[in-house]
């Protein structure tokens, strides 16, 4: 069982972080960055994040896993059909990767290869079903596997999405399809998170709240304009704008959000975008 699965089962408050594979073959900065992480249970390895082509998430996750860092492998439906997704999941299992975050994926329009043909052969619910099937020993064609993978599949959710009921029916489907934990899109407000966690209670699936470290008002506006599902509220942008030291204000905002997560959720997922050295300060 992965540490992440164990700690969540044991009711421990978990901390996850994330690392993006390089554009190129130089893994040193990513491996070095992972080594320096402190107080983190597992590290998400992003998959062509924002539809920008990078080294394969599986390759970096395998390296991290073998050098002793527990990973959460992110896999999207955007770039691979059902055969490639199954192949990659079996490959991940062969490298000892258990934690998965199975996603639809941002649309290719947002990235650096907007002319590519998007795949979306499966959606995230179907990919969770696929992972559950592999764990039960059969592929999507019903053929038996020689060697059965063990996974701890997770899914993503935007707790502030509207209409809420529409978003939540998909959460229910994801749980039915085998999601064992959720990592959320960046959280910026207490109210929507509280409402979401109240709805989650009967499902008894742990939720790891996404916390994004904003360094400036400019960055917040960029996120709003360019990252699907991220909406930084105006009052937070103003706080960053008015602050003498925007980075310190961003840290303060992140700390407040971690506080809400400690009150309501089972963990936090820290998106520090290159400022991983700030993680202890965010958790302090």
């Amino acid at each position: 069982m992965s540490q992440l699965a164990q700690q969540l089962a044991g009711g421990q408050f978990v901390v996850t972080a994330e690392i993006a594979p390089p554009k190129g073959t130089n893994l040193a900065p990513a491996l070095d960055g992972a080594r320096k992480l402190r107080g983190v249970t597992a590290v998400n390895v992003t998959d062509n994040q924002g539809a920008n082509m990078r080294l394969s998430s599986l390759a970096l996750a395998a390296q991290l896993q073998q050098s002793g860092t527990e990973t959460i492998l992110q896999l999207t439906c955007r770039d691979r059909n059902r055969m490639a997704l199954q192949s990659d999941l079996l490959g991940a299992a062969a490298f000892g990767i258990e934690n998965l975050l199975l996603l639809s994926g941002d649309h290719g329009k947002f990235g650096d290869h907007p002319d590519a043909r998007p795949v979306f052969d499966l959606d995230s619910v179907q990919m969770l079903d696929m992972a559950s099937g592999l764990m039960a020993g059969t592929d999507m064609a019903g053929k038996p596997l020689n060697g059965v993978p063990r996974f701890f599949p997770g899914a993503a959710v935007n707790p502030a999405a509207e209409p809420f009921e529409l978003m939540f029916q998909k959460v229910t489907k994801k749980v039915a399809s085998g999601a064992r934990f959720f990592q959320t899109q960046s959280v910026f407000e207490h109210g929507p998170l509280e409402r979401f966690m109240a709805a989650m209670a009967p499902l008894r699936v742990p939720v790891i709240a996404g916390v994004l470290l904003m360094r400036s008002a400019k960055m917040a506006r960029f996120l709003n304009a360019n990252i699907p599902g991220v909406k930084v509220p105006q009052p937070l942008i103003e706080r960053l704008e008015d602050a003498g030291d925007p980075m310190a204000e961003g840290l303060a905002i992140a700390r407040e959000t971690v506080g809400w997560a400690r009150e309501l959720c089972q963990g936090v997922h820290l998106m520090t975008l290159g400022h991983e050295d700030q993680i202890p300060a965010i958790l302090a």
Binding site: C77, R78, L103, S104, G105, D106, H107, K109, P118, F120, D123, S124, V125, Q126, A156, V157, N158, A161, E162, P163, L166, M167, Q169, K170, K173, Q185, P228, G229, K231
Partner: peptide, 16 residues
């Protein structure tokens, strides 16, 4: 649906 999803909206839906 821009992604042709079959089980509900993606995480990119903002205010519907």
């Amino acid at each position: 649906c821009a992604k042709g999803l079959l089980n509900g909206p993606c995480g990119g839906m903002e205010d519907g």
